[in-house]
Design a protein around this nucleic acid. Sequence first.
DNA 1: ATTCTTACA
DNA 2: TGTAAGTA
Length: 121
Amino acid sequence: MLIGTMARQTGVSARLLRYYEEQGLLAPRRRSSGFRDYREQDVHAVRHIRALLAAGLSTRAIAALMPSLPGGAGLAPVPLSADLLAVLRRERVRLRDAAASLLAACEVLDAITASAQVPHC
DNA sequence: ATTCTTACA
DNA sequence: TGTAAGTA
């Protein structure tokens, strides 16, 4: 599919799609016309990219782990460098802590909303 | 009508 | 990121 279709199906602008490619997050093939030709698989890849980016991972780290994601280029277990593995484990800990903080805040709101009185006008 | 690259705001 | 330019 062409970039315009990809943009509509992923909700990501063509501009950003090209940027992801520049950062090594996507590698769509080109048609003889030079136009990018995305596959269904790339739609899922963009979902992963968005999720990881939202989680705070760098495009650098994401680019490095893309081949390991389901639907990646490799069919066999992808060899991860010790360096990347260290980065990912550090991110895992950071996200676990962040999740704990968010859960704590959620519980505070639970308590407040559960006991809140609704003033009637 | 769409996409491409490069570049500026 | 959005957009303009000049193409293909």
